[in-house]
């Protein structure tokens, strides 16, 4: 099943979760959850609704504490290593309605203590790629769903954290916009090669974007299977017509439906 590239198999993963466990009262959410992502790898976590995917992200970003297990960054399991490691993009875009787009984009940098002018200078070169040039002074309410989602992603990547955590970023979009956004994200990712962990319940999205896909079980979540996606990049609409893609999709669906 595990078919990571040989060069990566020996390297220390950028991110590694080992034996993560978490319960809320009597409700066991995570049980012995282990997964990893190498530098520059696009990894997806696929799981049924309410299977604890978002709880996993909460643990990574410090919103929740795990009851057991370890999270290490470059092999370092200390809290300090974890502190600045993640940039998180939530399910909803959560653009703050009282900040203009540019001020939303610099929010993470401002929290880090970067001065306003310096933060804007770091956002500026990304505006074109993210399709937001000319919209800096708009209010979030004036943007379409797709644009808001791109703004939320820009706000995430501009923090220049080593690992991006994307929590169902396109879940709220209509089908057509979602497909456009997936193609766009694949293109942009090709250019920047961020280390990405994507949560999704969309099998096709996982196949189209990922290098590797983890399938989680129902609660308590644990990894059921791990599938490599050896499809060539850059990926296009034809990629999805590739029989290999179809086979992987079927394999993932089968694992999901158990």
């Amino acid at each position: 099943m595990t078919a990571a590239a040989p060069a990566q198999a020996t390297a220390t993963p950028k991110l590694e979760l080992r034996g993560l466990a978490k319960s809320f009262g009597t409700l066991e959410v995570l049980r012995d959850l282990s997964l990893h992502a190498h530098a520059g790898e696009f990894v997806s976590i696929l799981g049924p609704s309410g299977s604890g995917k978002s709880t996993t992200f909460s643990i990574l970003t410090g919103g929740e504490r795990a009851d057991g297990g370890e999270v290490s960054i470059d092999g370092d399991a200390s809290a300090a290593a974890r502190a600045g490691a993640f940039a998180y993009m939530p399910q909803k875009d959560v653009l703050l309605p009282w900040r203009r787009i540019v001020d939303n984009l610099t929010l993470g940098l401002e929290v880090q203590g970067v001065k306003r002018a310096a933060a804007r200078a770091r956002v500026a070169p990304l505006l074109e790629t993210f399709g937001l040039a000319g919209f800096e002074q708009h209010w979030p309410a004036q943007l379409s769903g797709g644009m808001r989602q791109r703004a939320a992603l820009l706000r995430t990547v501009v923090q220049e954290r080593p690992i991006l955590l994307l929590d169902e970023p396109f879940g709220a979009l209509d089908a057509l916009t979602r497909t456009q956004m997936q193609r766009w994200l694949e293109e942009v990712w090709e250019r920047y090669r961020w280390t990405v962990v994507l949560i999704t319940h969309d099998v096709r999205e996982a196949v189209f974007l990922s290098d590797r896909v983890y399938v989680l079980s129902q609660r308590p979540a644990t990894v059921v299977t791990e599938v490599a996606v050896p499809l060539p990049r850059p990926r296009t609409l034809e990629t999805l017509a590739d029989p290999v893609a179809g086979r992987i999709e079927a394999q993932l669906l089968e694992a999901l439906l158990g």
Partner: peptide, 29 residues
């Protein structure tokens, strides 16, 4: 205030006061 917005700010490393100033206070206006 949206819990998601507060969680986002905390994921950025924001202090409680910062979350108040950037999310809770503007929401309340």
């Amino acid at each position: 205030a949206e819990p998601e917005a507060e969680q986002l700010l905390r994921s950025m490393g924001a202090s409680r006061w910062r979350v108040f100033r950037s999310v809770r206070l503007p929401t309340s206006l």
